[in-house]
Amino acid sequence: MYELLVPHNPRIRVLLERLERLRGAADDFCFVDERDGQVVGTVLLHLCPDVMFEDRPYALLENLVVDPGARGRGSGRALLGQAERVCREHGCTKVVLLSGVHRTAAHTFFERLGYSGSVSRAFKKYLLR
């Protein structure tokens, strides 16, 4: 599924042991939407410590991907809804969602769900080559 986000990237390697570690982590989550026995969507959620607002974390969403054949059927909405429920349970102050600049259809979807692309600007520096 991650190849849908970054096609033809030879560095993509999903490790089962990494997924198992996420399962037991208190502040990291990998949500999966499964339909008819097939994974059709996934998102990573990380709760990040913050020093500005008492002991309340903020959340970072990464690698939201929905299979093209399943888009428009509620998978993305369900995944983000689950992530937001966990964020509220943990008292998060905000949710930061990163998305590739070229994914304009996804940006429209995010905005419909209340995310704003004009509040902040994200910068990335890749360290893995």
Rank of each mutant, 00 (worst) to 15 (best):
M1D: 05
Y2I: 11
Y2G: 10
V6A: 15
H8Y: 11
P10T: 09
P10Y: 10
I12V: 08
L15G: 10
L16V: 15
L16I: 14
R18V: 13
L19G: 13
L22Y: 06
L22K: 06
A25W: 01
A25Q: 03
A26N: 11
D28R: 14
F31Y: 10
E34D: 10
R35N: 05
D36K: 07
G37Q: 00
V39T: 06
V40R: 07
V43P: 02
V43C: 06
L44V: 11
H46L: 07
H46I: 00
L47A: 00
P49Q: 01
D50H: 10
V51D: 14
F53L: 12
E54T: 14
A59I: 07
R73D: 00
G76C: 02
L79P: 02
L79Q: 06
G81S: 05
R85E: 11
R85D: 09
V86C: 04
C87M: 06
E89T: 01
H90A: 13
H90V: 02
C92P: 03
K94R: 14
V95C: 11
V96H: 03
V96S: 02
L98W: 07
G100C: 10
H102D: 13
A106I: 00
H107K: 09
R112I: 08
Y115Q: 08
V119P: 09
V119H: 14
V119G: 12
S120N: 15
R121S: 14
R121F: 11
Y126R: 15
